[in-house]
Amino acid sequence: MIDDAAKEYLHSDLREAREVMLWKLDGLGEYDVRRPLTSTGTNLLGLVKHLSVWESRYFGEVFDRPFPEPLPRWDDLGERGTDLWVTEHETRAEIIDRYRRVGRHADATISSLSLDSPGHVPWWPRPRVKLFNILVHMLTETSRHAGHADILREQLDGSTGTAARSAAPGQDAAHWEAHRARIERAAEAAVAAPAQHGDGPAPGPARTAP
């Protein structure tokens, strides 16, 4: 019984995390869902593409239940990294629809197997796994990227939250500027008074006279 409850708990959280990833795209134009928003090129639609590729592998070939659509091979060095961004020839609808198809395929694998069902991950140092390991891994991976997406979306339009029903109430720019300034003052004060922390002088940002 505990195995069934644990599987449903993990599976439910994974389904919710997938929806968060897609919700982060809502209301944005084509450029904003695709454009790089960090120095390493992280972008919203690319995160969804990345998760669709890897979830299809982990709940597909790992358990000898391959996803029935072509994917770049995990060991193809020429394709490495292309799952993290979207070309001009790939449409937003294609990426989202594939993520949903991958989710349905993964759900079927999870529903059909027990938590101790064996699998094989050839790209892991210890390739012998169970469904439990993969469920935890993909939940962790999806939640991690949902956190990335939350920050990227906040950079674009200030929107935060994990779903439409729990989105943070909107605040004007003046509110957030004052909030940020308060945090900045606290950080500067901590650097200016290192003795309070029981340590020696702490490194901090160089300050210029106002």
Rank of each mutant, 00 (worst) to 15 (best):
L28D: 12
L10E: 10
R98Q: 10
A93N: 08
A149C: 11
A106H: 10
R98W: 09
H89V: 09
A193Y: 10
G198N: 02
L28E: 12
L156D: 11
E19H: 11
I2K: 14
K24L: 01
H175A: 12
I96Y: 02
S111Y: 02
G78H: 06
A168S: 13
S117H: 14
G119I: 03
D150W: 01
Y58D: 05
R182T: 15
A173E: 15
H11Y: 08
A202Q: 14
L77W: 10
D116F: 01
T160P: 01
T160C: 09
G204L: 04
W85M: 05
T208C: 00
S52K: 01
F132N: 10
W124K: 06
E141N: 09
G27H: 09
I110W: 12
D83R: 02
A186Q: 15
D83I: 01
E69S: 03
P194T: 04
A192K: 13
R34N: 13
E154V: 01
L71A: 04
Y9K: 03
F63E: 08
R182E: 15
S143C: 09
A149G: 12
D13Q: 15
R65V: 04
M21E: 03
R80G: 00
D4G: 11
R73F: 02
V121H: 11
V191K: 08
A193N: 15
P210H: 01
H89M: 02
D76N: 08
A192T: 06
D116H: 13
V136L: 14
H89A: 14
R185H: 15
L47P: 06
V53F: 11
G78E: 13
G103E: 11
W176E: 08
E154H: 10
A6Y: 07
T208Y: 06
L25F: 11
L131K: 05
N43V: 02
A108Y: 09
D97E: 15
E55C: 04
R57W: 13
L14K: 07
S117K: 04
A164E: 15
F59P: 09
L25G: 11
G119N: 04
Y99K: 03
G103S: 14
L139N: 03
P72I: 03
A146L: 08
S143K: 06
E30H: 05
L139M: 07
D116V: 01
D199R: 15
A149W: 07
L51T: 09
A174I: 11
E55G: 07
K7S: 10
A174G: 07
G46A: 07
Q196W: 06
Y31P: 00
N133F: 01
H50E: 08
V48S: 06
E16D: 09
K49V: 09
S114R: 14
P66E: 13
S114D: 15
G119W: 04
A174C: 00
Y58I: 03
V129H: 13
M138I: 05
